[in-house]
Design a binder for these strands. Structure first.
Lengths: 253, 253
DNA sequence: GAGTGGTCTAGACCACAAA
DNA sequence: TTGTGGTCTAGACCACTCC
């Protein structure tokens, strides 16, 4: 089953064979693969070599291992589609922040916990918010859950001047969230920008988001600007890539 | 150096220690880590355990291994920022497609190779283009390079009826690309949509894009719609996540 | 208790890079 | 030639799951 003369490492040959059986449907999503000991028998290689092969498939996100149970073909995830319309004033008027509005539309039971703190702006924050490095910013650290599962992390930062003495410094900002409070204070939001990237999660993110091996995170930095172009808020979001898709639309020209 | 009573696996403790030394700056970007044999000495664990630790850091994209040379702290990459303005008619008028316009603005020497073929629409394609599954589509398969390096893969699909007998079925579509040809044929583009996700690369993508271990890819499916709402083209793009950031902007409301 | 994956050892030999 | 990472073996014991 493994060609030792081909120059291709044995564990890669085993991984390629298993991958082929998965894409061909021989092992369907949710199916259990043969146990590592059975694969040792089948391919006539040692167990560490089998484990190298399985680990490769895990790092590709093709399979997931469950201790004491087996290795399973990763089932496709429910994809949350986030469209930019989630930021409309209409949604805010219905007493929902961006996340709650999205979840409610999908039949999820959303919840979120917030911590508020104050810190000095580092270089990156200063650049996005166009303030001096070291200036005080209000930081709202949020963990968002759907049906109890953590699905999103978000860190929102605003210049402290904009929030002092307002509900934006409280855990509960009230109906419509921070954006609604900003507009009440006369800071009318003119436009948004989102900067989207992806990377592998840190160990903290892996445990917080309960990510399987081989799952990247999507990073979104959203900046809200006042109608005169002044940055009001920046929001660093981290989303599990296997559960989210972002959609953007715009008119030609 | 490793606490065997803590319950935390040795290779994770080693990885955490090395990761800490990297974020603290003790090992700076580009620096070589001690060799695996040296780490064996230092941590008093076996070489496979050291390799497990290093492999964890590789899968996190923190370090890259170079055969025969050593393991190095991954240096930060040049980030290409793609803004939606890359699709403006103004750019097309200057004889540039989306990719070439972007690269030229950055001082890169861009090149791209294209293969054209025709195939039957699968379910996903049919849904995006709102055509019957099995209907014939023109497929333009592109590999884009900057300074010789592959930086982007793109597969563009259009209903065959829109391209029959036009330069869109040729390798060279002429000035302004496929979008310009569509508009000349009376298909004025009304709006665009982009659907953004991320995942781990397939082995083929890893070699084509020369991705290091622990580098995800960003996937973008762009759909161009005619002013009456009919889908004209869909474009599946695959970008190395360590070299790209996407930006979107829109007015509030 | 039996079966599963998770961790770890102490070697061996190979392929690649640089002096 | 020496040192590097890459592959592979043949075990061992542990932790978790399920019967």
């Amino acid at each position: 089953m493994v060609d030792k003369t081909s120059g291709v490492p044995a564990f890669r040959q085993v991984a390629a064979d298993l991958r082929g059986r998965i894409v061909s449907g021989e092992y369907a999503p949710g199916d259990r693969l043969p146990s590592e000991r059975e694969l040792v028998e089948h391919y006539h290689v040692s167990r560490p070599t089998i484990r190298d092969a399985v680990n490769l498939l895990r790092s590709e996100g093709v399979v997931v291992a469950e201790h004491g149970k087996g290795v399973f073909v990763r089932p496709p995830n429910t994809i949350h589609r986030l469209a930019r319309s989630r930021l409309s004033r209409a949604a805010r008027a219905e007493n929902k922040g961006a996340f709650l509005a999205d979840a409610a539309a999908k039949g999820f039971t959303p919840s979120s916990s917030v911590k508020v703190r104050f810190e000095a702006a580092d270089e990156r924050v200063a650049e996005y918010l166009r303030i001096e490095p070291g200036a005080e910013v209000t930081v709202r650290d949020r963990v968002m859950r759907a049906n109890g599962l953590v699905v999103q992390l978000a860190v929102s930062r605003l210049p402290r001047e904009l929030t002092r003495g307002t509900p934006s410094e409280e855990v509960d900002t009230g109906s419509g969230g921070v954006y609604a409070r900003l507009e009440e204070a006369g800071h009318v939001i003119g436009h948004y920008a989102e900067h989207v990237g992806a990377r592998m999660p840190t160990p903290e993110e892996t445990s917080a988001l309960q990510l399987g091996q081989g799952t990247p995170v999507i990073t979104v930095t959203r900046v809200a600007y006042r109608d005169d172009g002044t940055p009001l808020e920046m929001n660093d979001m981290v989303l599990p890539a296997d559960r989210y898709e972002l959609s953007y639309e715009w008119a030609a020209e």
